[in-house]
Computed example of a mutant assay.
Amino acid sequence: MIEARDLGIQFTRHRLRHFKLRELFIHGGRREPKRTGFWPLRHVSFTVSAGDTVGIIGRNGTGKSTLLRLIAGVLIPDEGSVHVRGAVAPLLELSAGFSNDLTGRENLHLVGSLHGLSRPFLRAKFDEIVEFAGEQVQKAIDTPVRHYSSGMKVRLGFSVIAQLPHPILLMDEVMAVGDAEFRAKCYATIERLLAEGRTLVLVSHNEGDLTRFCLRGLYFDAGVLRVDGTVREALDAYHGVPATSGSAGPSN
Score class of each variant (00 low, 15 high):
residue 160 V to F: 06
residue 161 I to G: 04
residue 68 L to I: 04
residue 22 R to H: 09
residue 196 E to R: 13
residue 46 F to M: 11
residue 166 H to V: 00
residue 100 N to P: 11
residue 66 T to D: 11
residue 161 I to A: 05
residue 21 L to S: 09
residue 211 T to E: 13
residue 76 I to C: 08
residue 194 L to G: 00
residue 130 V to F: 04
residue 75 L to Q: 05
residue 204 S to Y: 01
residue 126 F to E: 13
residue 120 P to V: 06
residue 48 V to S: 08
residue 70 L to T: 05
residue 36 T to Q: 11
residue 207 E to A: 01
residue 8 G to M: 12
residue 59 R to E: 15
residue 211 T to N: 07
residue 48 V to G: 03
residue 192 R to Q: 12
residue 172 D to Q: 09
residue 184 A to K: 14
residue 92 L to M: 01
residue 124 A to G: 10
residue 63 G to D: 00
residue 108 L to V: 02
residue 65 S to L: 15
residue 201 V to L: 15
residue 16 L to A: 08
residue 154 V to Y: 01
residue 21 L to D: 09
residue 22 R to T: 01
residue 119 R to K: 14
residue 195 A to R: 12
residue 218 L to D: 05
residue 37 G to K: 08
residue 203 V to T: 03
residue 85 R to N: 08
residue 158 F to G: 09
residue 2 I to C: 04
residue 219 Y to N: 10
residue 235 L to W: 10
residue 215 L to G: 15
residue 80 G to W: 00
residue 153 K to T: 05
residue 70 L to S: 08
residue 51 G to D: 10
residue 85 R to E: 09
residue 102 L to P: 02
residue 105 R to D: 06
residue 19 F to Q: 10
residue 70 L to Y: 09
residue 230 T to H: 11
residue 199 T to R: 05
residue 112 G to D: 04
residue 232 R to P: 02
residue 10 Q to I: 15
residue 224 V to S: 13
residue 81 S to M: 01
residue 229 G to V: 08
residue 66 T to F: 12
residue 143 T to W: 02
residue 210 L to D: 05
residue 158 F to P: 11
residue 133 A to I: 08
residue 115 H to W: 12
residue 11 F to W: 06
residue 83 H to T: 12
residue 232 R to G: 09
residue 85 R to M: 04
residue 105 R to K: 12
residue 119 R to H: 11
residue 177 V to D: 03
residue 43 H to Y: 04
residue 14 H to Q: 15
residue 247 S to C: 13
residue 175 M to W: 04
residue 244 T to L: 12
residue 10 Q to R: 11
residue 186 C to R: 07
residue 14 H to D: 13
residue 145 V to F: 00
residue 161 I to H: 05
residue 224 V to D: 04
residue 126 F to W: 14
residue 10 Q to W: 07
residue 53 T to K: 15
residue 80 G to H: 01
residue 212 R to N: 07
